[in-house]
Design a protein around this nucleic acid. Structure first.
Ligand code: FES
Ligand code: FES
Lengths: 134, 134
DNA sequence: GTTAAAGTTGATATTTTTTATCCACATTAA
DNA sequence: TTAATGTGGATAAAAAATATCAACTTTAAC
């Protein structure tokens, strides 16, 4: 019932990027040093963020990572989903999975509501809001 | 970000018990057969529920497990907490842990709110409500 | 009293997931 | 041309979750 450490790495990375002037690049190496995250592991994390469309990357000398869209359009839920996949507090609630018991299962509606509430909160504030507060 | 299978076992067990006339015993063995849960693993799960004050147990022949309080006073949140400990979607939010960054950390308030929303939903309906629906 | 049914407890094994490391490669700006 | 950087895949190490085993205690039933 916890976020993985990798999600936390991703959040911290996104906060670093969002604090920069929009469009500016920061290398994984620098991020890993500033945030004390294992460099090679962070690289993969950044790659996941990239696949999720949250950051774009630039190879080569002076390359790095930058936000792929405005910080106003990014929320914690987006970041977590990019790393861990769609948030599902129970396998039965994962998209694409149809549980055979679902019709009679009295638990699943409650979990569904709980999950929706969780998600709603994670979407309430944008990355931009977070940076302002810090 | 998921409930463990053990929590699911616990929920299914509690539903079995709540379906019984109040105070009636059911042995771990029978529950494990009905719900297709490894018996020895279920025994430990039941023990956790017992430590959490949700069920009481009776040793010896004809012994078993029964609800320790009315199904109206038990929610999913209680069950999960008995198995996994206090629900914390992030280590920083675990009771007793004081994160040194908490003062400046912009993420923690959001996670705290998300966690509260999750918990509220998990507490909204009682075990008794669930049994009625099934 | 004996016995068999049950919960208790702790050790250990297995499996799965998460985290970390390593390295060969592709791209690109300087 | 070269050094900095992301890409991608393999592998290892660590941690957590799940499962199994076995010796023990309690207790109702006979
Ligand atoms: S068991 Fe799958 S929905 Fe409840
Ligand atoms: S890092 Fe602990 S509260 Fe944010």
């Amino acid at each position: 019932m916890q976020l993985t450490r990798q999600s936390e790495y991703a959040i911290r990375t996104m906060l670093e990027l969002a604090a920069l002037p929009y469009g500016e690049l920061l290398s994984s190496k620098v991020i890993s040093q500033r945030q004390d995250i294992p460099e090679d592991f962070l690289k993969k994390t950044v790659h996941l963020l990239s696949l999720g469309g949250l950051v774009s990357t630039q190879r080569g000398t002076q390359g790095g990572v930058r936000l792929a869209k405005a910080a106003e359009q990014i929320t914690l839920a987006h970041i977590v989903a990019a790393i861990e996949g769609p948030i599902a507090i129970n396998p039965c609630l994962a998209p694409g999975y149809f549980c055979p018991n679902q019709v009679t299962c009295p638990v699943s509606p409650i979990l569904a509501r709980a999950q929706a509430a969780l998600l709603a909160e994670l979407n309430k504030q944008t990355l931009a809001d977070l940076v302002k507060q810090a």
